[in-house]
Design a protein around this nucleic acid. Structure first.
Lengths: 134, 134
DNA sequence: CATTTCATGTAGCGTATGCTACACTTTCGA
DNA sequence: TCGAAAGTGTAGCATACGCTACATGAAATG
């Protein structure tokens, strides 16, 4: 029961790192489609105002995940890239798993967004096993 | 891709209702174990200060989910009970599913806490089907 | 090259959640 | 029954994220 309570607390203080993961993943994604990632691109993608993006980018920069000059484009640091790729792996694996489970694509995509930050390595491995043996 | 972006936005504004679900579920749980649920019980359970609990309970009361007199115990309204039971169903089903998938109990419990608020009805049904056909 | 337009930055506000410190109620035991 | 202990409330602060409004930089266009 204590692990349960611990998790309640953890969940609540982890929103900042969830946001970090969402952003670095989005940045990597955008950079895979176009040559630069701008505040505007992120604002559109995340459906928030550019102000919110700017502030979050400042925090991510202070955490060493992104680099950005004033009025310049956003890029990922090596640490940021690493986080983005780990996040992406979870994202894609989870989505594939839900689809394999029979979840309609619309729901699977939606659920993946919410769930991806809460899936442990252990669970990911079980999902991989499930996919391999299906 | 737009449903993906929509979900980003939704995820970010849904923390309040996630908290509501956590709390009503915890309250129901506590009331199943003892005759009354106090601020102190919730504070211990959620591992936050009693101040945080008090404030959240005020919000939940204003939303019609709980009732509470000053210095008195907490109880669930019919609406609150309903939310608690729906939340509990998701919780238990998800946990059972993860265990059936082979996830170690410790990880399964932890993951369930984080994921339960992000699992759609569609996915829950698929998990039920999986459990039935295993 | 000037002006308009688009992108970005900053100021300032709101909500939700977290805390410590202090005040007040309730409860319990000497 | 009265004082200490436990529980609860309130004040005030911090962080994260959301916004609008306004200022400024950059880019595009006539």
């Amino acid at each position: 029961m204590s692990s349960l309570s611990n998790q309640f607390a953890k969940t609540r203080t982890d929103h900042a790192s969830e946001t970090a993961e969402d952003y670095v993943e989005a940045i990597e994604d955008i950079l895979g489609q176009q040559d630069s990632c701008r505040v505007k691109d992120l604002a559109q993608r995340m459906e928030v105002s550019h102000v919110t993006v700017t502030r979050i980018l400042q925090r991510l920069a202070s955490e060493g995940l992104v680099t950005k000059e004033p009025y310049g484009p956003v890029s990922l640091t090596p640490t940021g890239k690493q986080m983005a790729q780990a996040s992406r792996r979870r994202h894609e694996l989870l989505l594939e798993f839900l689809l394999a489970l029979g979840v309609p694509e619309t729901d699977a995509i939606r659920d993946t967004e919410g769930m991806e930050h809460h899936v442990s390595e252990a669970t990911l491995r079980c999902m991989e096993t499930f996919l391999a043996n299906r």
